[in-house]
Write a protein that binds this DNA or RNA. Structure first.
Lengths: 136, 136
DNA sequence: CTGAGTGCAAAACATTTGCATACAT
DNA sequence: ATGTATGCAAATGTTTTGCACTCAG
């Protein structure tokens, strides 16, 4: 089994506090795509005194460290995905906003240089939109 | 040439006011991906008394009518794309948020039914991320 | 005319920031 | 110890809403 988020943070020598451990623990697992607010809720269940500002700043740091991927799938709030190892895409329910991972192996087509508009491309992500079973 | 946004609205018998005409006019053209706030700015240049609430509600209606496509490309604010005819994808600058269209012809791979997670898929959009010429 | 559209201001969210205090290393 | 992380509360940015007034059809 691959190292957990918490283990990866320790391995980096990252300063660990109870708050950061709570955030890491909430984000452990497969197919996890929580908003900052959901992370706050679940982290407060583990550690009641954790504050909103700390959750936001911790999520921002984990993202900058490359330990989380920030997803902007609807116009409302960002979601955080701890599944960073393989590049993978997402399915989004247009009705309730729930998110599923697409197993790796599906690859976005490479964009011909003529279409780069002068940009240096670093990644490509596909968002499949539709309606989930619950919303139908 | 294909009918303009304004012409399409007229053809639907949609009730037209000076405000709605201003919003439609601002969104005319190719490679336009404005935020609500940018639409407000430009619409106020045409019609100083237009209000923020009207711009938001008009954009929402145009989107529901299928005359605009709402893009959630960064976590900040939605952008509105009047180019709805062909399905097309986008290039986004991670630094400044500017957006370019990818010419049609590029298609996202079809997702095998086994990966649908019970969802009914309606569309697939690719977001290519990178850094634009100006930001380098 | 008349219901739908508009402006205004306030509310509802999402996120960020400044600063004094607490704590991991 | 010491510098960084945290909590609090206020600020910022985006979008929505309630309500009285206006106007397109």
């Amino acid at each position: 089994m691959s190292p957990s988020l918490l283990e990866r943070l320790q391995a980096r020598g990252y300063r660990l506090t109870a708050q950061r451990r709570a955030v890491a623990q909430v984000l452990e697992g497969e197919n996890v795509h929580l908003t900052a607010d959901e992370v706050l809720d679940q982290a407060q269940a583990l550690l009641p005194e954790i504050s909103r500002a700390t959750v936001y700043s911790t999520l921002q740091q984990f993202t900058e460290m490359g330990e989380l991927r920030e997803l902007s799938l609807d116009g409302r709030s960002k979601r955080y995905d701890p599944n960073i190892a393989p590049v993978h895409h997402h399915l989004v329910c247009e009705s309730c906003g729930s998110v599923f991972d697409v197993a790796h192996g599906i690859k976005a087509p490479t964009l011909p240089a003529a279409q780069h508009h002068g940009m240096a491309i670093t990644s490509a992500e596909i968002v499949y939109q539709g309606t989930c079973a619950d919303c139908r």
